[in-house]
Design a protein around this nucleic acid. Structure first.
Lengths: 234, 234
DNA sequence: CCGGATCCGAATCGATACTG
DNA sequence: CAGTATCGATTCGGATCCGG
């Protein structure tokens, strides 16, 4: 394992040695949504070989980033340590940065519940949200469905489908104010290249129920602009 | 190269595909100090195989993170694009995060001019600095020597030794107010585990010239505390 | 010296199968 | 559910070589 060392005494190097291996940051991305079982991670990262998943989880535990915890009577989840949670603003900022270079999805690219949850978190603008009324959305992308509630500067996301993990967030009471389905083109709404109205016209977004005008509020609340990658909230 | 794709349509995934390969982030770290020639990078990353350095530079160019630029009449430097520079606050935050898990250096670990420059940038606290008088330090670690000037909330670092790169920062005029040499234990001063006075007593820091009391100001200006990884300045 | 390209053994990764 | 085991495919590391 010393063979993977970069041979430099430096904080950046240390960080890369801790979380720079292939797949590690994506495992952490999913754990930032909540504690996950081994199998949850495997489902959320369909292309990861299981031996790699095992190896990464072991390394991340040794690095103090991830911890195993019991779930119910028998059962087991992986969760971030406090040190691991400190990575969250960094990963969110990285997501904003990467967002700008996203093109069209490849033919085999998928969107998972956890990746979409984190994508919404990267795009969330607390400042904008706090000056807007509370809102309650239901978002569908592919077969992923999320319940997204914004209140003041707080964002709460619960996974409706596919089958929510046992430790997922609790569903808000009541009905969403708007339900909409989107394809990859939702990216253009987040980036501001399309207004919600244009996105509906272009067939990128379909309103399934509720008030279409609420999409304006959604677009104001979730937005990543060109310079957006620099800001990193604590 | 599509084989390296993670198969997910997500900003974080895109970011990791752009800069997540082995050595990539360390190349970027050095480029954040300034434009560098191929050979500068090779010297600053002694353990990188040259074919990997070539491959990474090519990939980073394709990703729009790095660009080649002419230097003088004949000659060539690699430099960050604007998009690549947007990574800087993220890399600095990552350095703060990794700093906390740094232990003692391994027997073959080295400190380079660029890694030390970036380490000081990660530890720099503009808020603290702006309420302190300006200061002019000369820092030696191993055979690396840096001239470090703090004025208000601005930090300027020039590399004195080893031989400054052709495009390095300009040396400030005048004499440094204090010259000191440090070993790896300087980390304990940055983390606050040792006061400068204790560090001098412990032989971790040697004052070669000037006022030893200025090290107090240095320790106030350059500091990473346990919760420090969260804050990310633009 | 600069800026790589080439070659090859070692280590890692990916895909699949299998197990307590 | 939570992983190991195996094995071919890739990538990495180390060294050498080469054209300007």
């Amino acid at each position: 394992m010393a063979a993977r060392s970069y041979g430099q005494y430096c904080g950046i190097t240390t960080a890369v040695e801790l979380i720079g291996e292939r797949w590690a940051l994506l495992i952490l991305r999913d754990l930032m949504v909540g504690p996950r079982r081994y199998t949850d991670l495997k489902v959320g990262l369909p292309r990861i070989p299981t031996n790699i998943l095992s190896a990464r989880l072991k390394e991340l535990q040794e690095g103090g980033v991830v911890r195993r915890a019991p779930l119910y009577r028998t059962g087991l989840v992986y969760e971030l340590t406090e040190y691991g949670r400190a990575l969250e603003p960094i990963v969110l900022a990285l997501g904003r940065w990467g967002f700008q270079q996203m093109g069209e999805p490849g033919p085999d690219d998928i969107v998972t519940a956890d990746s979409l949850t984190m994508a919404l978190r990267t795009a969330f603008r607390p400042d904008a949200a706090s000056s807007l009324p509370a809102a309650d959305y239901e978002v569908h992308v592919g077969d992923v469905a999320l319940r997204v509630r914004v209140e003041g500067d707080a964002l709460q996301i619960a996974q409706i489908a596919p089958a929510a993990p046992p430790v997922g967030g609790r569903l808000p009471d009541g009905e969403p104010e708007v339900v909409f389905a989107a394809g990859p083109g939702i990216r253009l709404v987040i980036s501001g290249e399309l207004t919600p109205a244009e996105a509906i016209d272009a067939g990128v977004v379909h309103v399934l129920a509720g008030e279409a005008t609420l999409l304006e509020r959604f677009a104001d609340t979730f937005h990543i602009d060109k310079a957006g990658s620099a800001a990193l909230a604590a």
